[in-house]
Simulated scan of single mutants.
Amino acid sequence: MTDPVRLVDIRDTPLDVAEVVGSLDDDAAGGLTLFIGQVRDHDGGKGVAALDYSAHPTALARLEDVCRRVAAAHDVRGVAAVHRVGPLQVGDLAVVVATTAAHRGDAFAASRDLIDTLKAEVPIWKHQVFDDASEEWVGTP
């Protein structure tokens, strides 16, 4: 089998769902599970006016490590994860993760593990500015 980690990136350009799905093309995969995180117009009861993601210089290596650990822990054929950095608008895609497996249950479990571990361990931080001019950082140490 080829390397299951097919696409890992952190970019300051718009994310492409078709690219992520295409990176996992595999005739032996019976299921592909995709998670798309997008910028919503509210958080914590406040309207979001602006949002900016920042990444630590080690973030890409950490993201690849997470992808490799998820691939090793689950019976998957492929893993892909792409995260956006920089200023984003409401509706923009912030993160796209996907996994493929012979069976749907394995793909669902791996994708859930992938997004949860990415959010917990990869040093990417969200700076939100709200409609009332207050602001917060999310995910900082």
Results as ranks from 00 to 15, higher is better:
residue 127 H to Y: 14
residue 130 F to G: 13
residue 53 Y to E: 05
residue 83 H to W: 02
residue 138 V to P: 05
residue 31 G to Q: 08
residue 40 R to N: 13
residue 101 A to P: 14
residue 68 R to F: 02
residue 21 V to A: 13
residue 56 H to L: 11
residue 9 D to A: 15
residue 130 F to V: 11
residue 107 A to K: 05
residue 133 A to M: 10
residue 13 T to A: 15
residue 48 V to G: 06
residue 79 V to M: 00
residue 36 I to S: 07
residue 75 D to I: 10
residue 53 Y to C: 10
residue 130 F to W: 13
residue 54 S to T: 15
residue 68 R to G: 02
residue 67 C to H: 01
residue 102 A to P: 02
residue 96 V to N: 07
residue 120 A to T: 11
residue 113 D to K: 04
residue 50 A to G: 08
residue 29 A to G: 11
residue 18 A to V: 14
residue 72 A to I: 00
residue 37 G to M: 01
residue 84 R to V: 10
residue 43 D to I: 06
residue 140 T to G: 09
residue 81 A to Q: 00
residue 16 D to V: 12
residue 46 K to C: 01
residue 92 D to I: 11
residue 9 D to V: 13
residue 81 A to F: 04
residue 51 L to W: 06
residue 2 T to S: 12
residue 62 R to S: 14
residue 80 A to N: 04
residue 12 D to T: 10
residue 52 D to G: 02
residue 52 D to P: 01
residue 6 R to P: 02
residue 119 K to Y: 01
residue 83 H to E: 07
residue 5 V to P: 03
residue 130 F to N: 15
residue 30 G to D: 02
residue 24 L to A: 09
residue 6 R to S: 06
residue 115 I to H: 07
residue 35 F to M: 03
residue 110 A to N: 09
residue 2 T to P: 13
residue 38 Q to N: 12
residue 63 L to M: 13
residue 116 D to L: 08
residue 96 V to F: 01
residue 50 A to W: 03
residue 82 V to M: 02
residue 129 V to L: 11
residue 85 V to L: 06
residue 128 Q to Y: 02
residue 24 L to D: 11
residue 59 A to F: 03
residue 70 V to S: 05
residue 11 R to S: 15
residue 86 G to I: 10
residue 13 T to M: 01
residue 30 G to A: 08
residue 58 T to I: 09
residue 124 I to L: 14
residue 95 V to I: 14
residue 130 F to T: 12
residue 83 H to I: 09
residue 131 D to P: 04
residue 32 L to R: 10
residue 96 V to L: 07
residue 62 R to N: 05
residue 34 L to V: 15
residue 24 L to R: 01
residue 87 P to C: 05
residue 109 A to W: 01
residue 98 A to C: 12
residue 123 P to C: 13
residue 102 A to S: 12
residue 5 V to D: 05
residue 63 L to R: 08
residue 89 Q to E: 14
residue 95 V to R: 00
residue 109 A to F: 00
residue 35 F to I: 03
residue 115 I to K: 05
residue 65 D to V: 00
residue 17 V to C: 11
residue 41 D to T: 01
residue 38 Q to T: 13
residue 111 S to I: 01
residue 100 T to N: 02
residue 26 D to M: 13
residue 91 G to P: 05
residue 120 A to L: 03
residue 106 D to M: 09
residue 106 D to T: 08
residue 93 L to V: 15
residue 13 T to C: 04
residue 77 R to T: 15
residue 9 D to Y: 06
residue 56 H to D: 15
residue 84 R to I: 08
residue 24 L to H: 08
residue 125 W to E: 12
residue 37 G to Q: 00
residue 93 L to T: 14
residue 128 Q to G: 06
residue 70 V to C: 04
residue 115 I to Y: 06
residue 82 V to G: 01
residue 17 V to R: 13
residue 28 A to N: 13
residue 71 A to L: 00
residue 101 A to G: 11
residue 9 D to P: 09
residue 29 A to D: 04
residue 68 R to A: 06
residue 9 D to N: 12
residue 138 V to C: 01
residue 66 V to A: 04
